[in-house]
Design a protein around this nucleic acid. Sequence first.
DNA 1: TAAAAATACTCCATAGGTATTTTAT
DNA 2: ATAAAATACCTATGGAGTATTTTTA
Lengths: 309, 309
Amino acid sequence: MNNISLKQLRYFCALAEHGHFGRAAEVSGISQPALSVQIKELEIELGIALFERSSRHVCLTAFGEQVTVRVNEILRAVDDLYDLARASRDRLTGRFKIGIIPTIAPYLLPTVLRYLSEEYSELDIHVRETLSSKLINELNDRTLDCAILALPIGETSFTEFPLFTESMVLVRPVTSEIPITSPEQLLDQKLLLLEEGHCFREQALTFCKVGTTRPRDGLDGSSLSTLVQMVGAGLGVTFIPEMAVPVEVGSARVCLNRFRPPEPGRVVGMIWRKSNPLASQFERVAEIVRRAAEYLRHQHRSQYDGLGI
Amino acid sequence: MNNISLKQLRYFCALAEHGHFGRAAEVSGISQPALSVQIKELEIELGIALFERSSRHVCLTAFGEQVTVRVNEILRAVDDLYDLARASRDRLTGRFKIGIIPTIAPYLLPTVLRYLSEEYSELDIHVRETLSSKLINELNDRTLDCAILALPIGETSFTEFPLFTESMVLVRPVTSEIPITSPEQLLDQKLLLLEEGHCFREQALTFCKVGTTRPRDGLDGSSLSTLVQMVGAGLGVTFIPEMAVPVEVGSARVCLNRFRPPEPGRVVGMIWRKSNPLASQFERVAEIVRRAAEYLRHQHRSQYDGLGI
DNA sequence: TAAAAATACTCCATAGGTATTTTAT
DNA sequence: ATAAAATACCTATGGAGTATTTTTA
């Protein structure tokens, strides 16, 4: 049975250093007999003497000297655990795996990553971009630490942290005449949507189905960028999130219009497993993401206004 | 206060490996609640969670994973202490510093070293050849582990282990006529002795002073070899230990004679500090030295007989 | 509802304290 | 005779057990 204790090893080091039971005990904050007993037990446990005692000197045996080196290493390694813990407690360390859906990633990520790496310089951030359903699986798998997606998810095992609400904007060909300002006006439009699985598709449809009918099916696109290009080619209309506007619109021959309230939109938030012990850290991370989004929105809003919409 | 215990670290490893409190507890030979408590205390001590718990899975946090590597190293290092102890207990390890007086060293050492290195193949043997008084100081200094010299020493702090008794042999010039067989006959001889400090000098004189007078002072030599050469040159007579005969006599034009009992002689033994915890090991070493000397004596005796003395 | 972890409590082993003895210089 | 380590003995902390509750899938 391995019954050596770290206390014994610390006492051993103190005694090895001071060569005197009384002083070593004092330094160790225990009484001399307590130290004597512990050293003796350590020797019994190892089955060999560590010190050569006399009333004048206490000095290490040859074996004791070999042990000193190793024990110092051990104690140093244990102390390192504390340091590591403190570092990990105060700020995230090591790998940090964040998931994000495709209809947010391209627009939010650059800014978020910049903000995060400013705050957590030594954090090794991994990004995974995929559909909400996969992100959720990977969160449950513990493959991801957290995910940025549209709320609500409605899984009780997750903490949902709302980041911001973003509006949907309608993208029309420049050739179209009158602005569309209510869902009803969409019914005779050909609506281009992201392919099945994207939550943004569902969100757009939800808005359109405010009534009971839905717009004529159009084509599916695999990215917002593609959809906008398709709109520019006159194939129909589509929605994009407000945040995508500065990136996706510009090159394409399209025009935008907002709706009158209630504007279509969605809540974007960050989620993580409630059981993850880094939860408190994640709130800080989420706050940083929120600030990044806010900054982005201000930037965009000025451009947006510049577009005169 | 550093209150992590090795037990906790072992439990941690078990839990990290099994991912299940119940099984890890079983493997560790304790109950599940005991394990729960210890893991929790470890986490409290470190101030950060090591595991992410749910009733389905128990898995390491990012921090826990970092800790696993280090803890495994720590536990391995602790186990190594046991191995090191066992190795040191069963056989001498590391440096072994042995002292030996000049009137024994050249004759006994080669054989002793051969015997010792056969028995302790990985022992790093250091030899120190000097006068008894210095050897004793160095034993007290703990510079030496043990010493081979003429007994008795009479220090209570030393264990004296007698190895063998060796006779002194008189060395005469071949030109001298009649054998000398009793101390009295030495009184009119010119006696060549080792310089002050060699115990062998005192031992020779002790024999000569069996009566009250002592032989005429001769010259001092720094080694037995020198003395024998001086005898060959007709400068006087000298004593050498029996063991030195095969080495020192042969090239010189001298003849030998023994005395009738009580033959002059001395007890050669090994000494070490009583307080040295390797004492039991030293008895084994001493026994090996004794066997080496015995072997040597048999070898010499046949040569000696061949000389027809 | 079932499986697993956490909690509550109890007990005993042992670390550590004080007083004393032994040892070695 | 003195300084230091070892021993004896006692106390109290805490490690570990059993029984139970809480949690989550």
